[in-house]
């Protein structure tokens, strides 16, 4: 392992679930972590408390990452209080599941805005600092829905597949400047989002998982932590699938 360097990280949607685990893991690796949230201030404050109690440095930053004004404001806030963002983790995501015949345009637009437009907006907003530093890590949380597709999630699957294409395109664009761009595609992970699926859906999913269980948020976070590290310096444009062997 390389020597630990302390950097500034931003985790969008970092107050709960996989984002929370990523924020805590990056903090434990010695990075200063901005924990972005949109509505749940108490969860974000709790994440900051937990990180600080463990001796880390963290900051809660409110803002809807699908909105460009909010993104500009929150990036400025992180810059002022922690410094230029060197590790961006695009994690914020929502679901608005429905069959295509019933899916309202708003459900399509909201999912694309929060899950994909946000990735473009945040990556653009941190790019200036990364170009100047000739170093940067952008890691976006995709999903197996974006790799294999999920019925009832055409919107979510499209947004998550969009992240994978974005990742490849941007990786080629900025690779010569020492910036790597990668994605992680989690399978069924035990979070609030999958708890909402119900027991039947979950047990049916588990039957298809080679490792025979749901994953934990931390098992996704460790993949993100690896991609954020100097050890992953020769990996770019890739999507690491963290799904317990779902596709085997």
């Amino acid at each position: 392992m390389g020597e630990a360097v302390s950097r500034v990280a931003l985790v969008t949607g970092g107050s709960r679930g996989i984002g929370r685990a990523i924020a805590e893991l990056l903090a434990s690796a010695g990075h200063s972590v901005a924990v972005n949230y949109v509505s749940n201030a108490s969860a974000a404050d709790d994440a900051v408390r937990v990180i600080e109690a463990a001796g880390g440095r963290a900051l809660a930053v409110q803002g809807d990452v699908g909105d460009e004004t909010a993104v500009a404001t929150l990036i400025d806030q992180v810059q002022d209080q922690l410094g230029s963002v060197e590790i961006l983790v695009n994690n914020a995501g929502i679901t608005r599941d429905d069959l295509i015949m019933r899916m309202k345009p708003e459900s399509w637009d909201e999912v694309l805005q929060t899950n994909l437009r946000s990735v473009y907006l945040c990556s653009k907003a941190v790019m200036r600092g990364m170009l100047r530093a000739r170093w940067g890590r952008i890691i976006s949380v995709s999903s197996v829905a974006g790799v294999y597709g999920n019925a009832g999630q055409a919107n979510y699957s499209a947004a998550k597949a969009g992240i994978i294409g974005f990742t490849k395109g941007l990786a080629k664009e900025v690779g010569s400047r020492g910036i790597t761009v990668n994605a992680v595609a989690p399978g069924f992970i035990a979070t609030d989002m999958t708890a909402a699926l119900g027991e039947d859906t979950t047990s049916a999913a588990v039957e298809r998982i080679t490792l025979g269980r749901l994953g934990t948020a931390r098992e996704v976070a460790t993949a993100v932590g690896y991609l954020a590290s100097d050890d992953a310096s020769y990996i770019t444009g890739q999507t690491i699938v963290v799904d317990g062997g779902l596709a085997l």
């Binding site: 200036r128 170009l131 100047r132 664009e173 900025v174 010569s176 400047r177």
Partner: peptide, 11 residues
């Protein structure tokens, strides 16, 4: 100078 290089120069 590639197109990204021009952007960097302007920065």
């Amino acid at each position: 100078v590639d197109s990204l290089g021009v952007v960097e120069l302007l920065m």
